[in-house]
Amino acid sequence: MSLNGKYGLGILLTFVLLAALMLYVFPLIYVITGVKVFNAANFFYTRFALWAVLGLIFLYSLFVEKNTFLLWKDKKYSSLFYIKAVIALYLICAFGGSFLNLIVQLLTREGMSSKLVQFSSVFKNNYPLIIFICLTAGAVEEFLMRGYIQPRLEKIYSSPYIGIIGSAVLFGILHSTYGTIGQVVVPFFIGTVFALFYKKYSNIKILIICHFMYDFVSMMIMNFIDIKHLSAF
């Protein structure tokens, strides 16, 4: 198999594993733990499943592709650049995502994702779990979506645009399991912003920090604001 073929198989494997995890991880955890209850402990275990996927894809790149996991070497920047980049990315994603979500709400009249409502009851005032959830999402999703998939799509099709749009589309589709249009449109937008940044600046650490901060702020808002008021907002 050619190297591009191995890249393509790796991308497919990544997407299938993540999709399967999004759909079936809770039933799997229930079977493993023997506790068929949606609680903080079981939710905590599901995050380890995401790290396991990252580990499998890392091994795939190492032993099948026989290549480095990150095809683009991280560039070094000053501390000031890190601060400016994280703040700028966060503001773009927060305001852009809010605007898009508002448009979706006006067009579809859809309510808040029932899955998010369910999740919010589990991490309510559980700050260690909130931090672990955000850290997992920031690291695993950025390493896989931007660090692994984006450069390989660009290599296969010899087009940076395919890498940017393709990784953003996959990122949006994976969030469709939350059951609302907004949970696809907004992640697609954020995925596009992050992919553009990664292509230009080639620094995955900044994206991980920003992703963590975006999720952390969102979850803290859900933690402190009554879900009914948040849904109306």
Rank of each mutant, 00 (worst) to 15 (best):
L91K: 03
S159I: 10
I29Y: 06
Y60P: 03
L17F: 13
P187H: 15
M22K: 13
F48E: 03
W72L: 06
S120I: 00
I181A: 06
V16Q: 08
F212G: 08
K66I: 00
F212T: 02
V16F: 15
V186R: 04
G111L: 13
I190D: 09
F197D: 12
L153T: 14
K115I: 07
N223A: 07
V31L: 14
S218Q: 07
F233W: 11
F119I: 12
F132V: 06
I131E: 01
C210G: 09
G34S: 12
V31R: 09
K228Q: 05
G55V: 10
I133V: 11
F143W: 13
M145Y: 02
V217C: 08
F233I: 13
K76F: 04
L207N: 09
L89R: 00
M112P: 03
F197N: 11
V169A: 15
L135Q: 14
I29S: 05
I162H: 00
M22S: 13
L71A: 02
I92V: 07
L18H: 05
F189A: 13
I221R: 05
L71V: 02
Y148H: 11
V35I: 15
H229N: 11
L196T: 01
S231F: 02
F224V: 11
A20K: 01
I131V: 15
F233D: 14
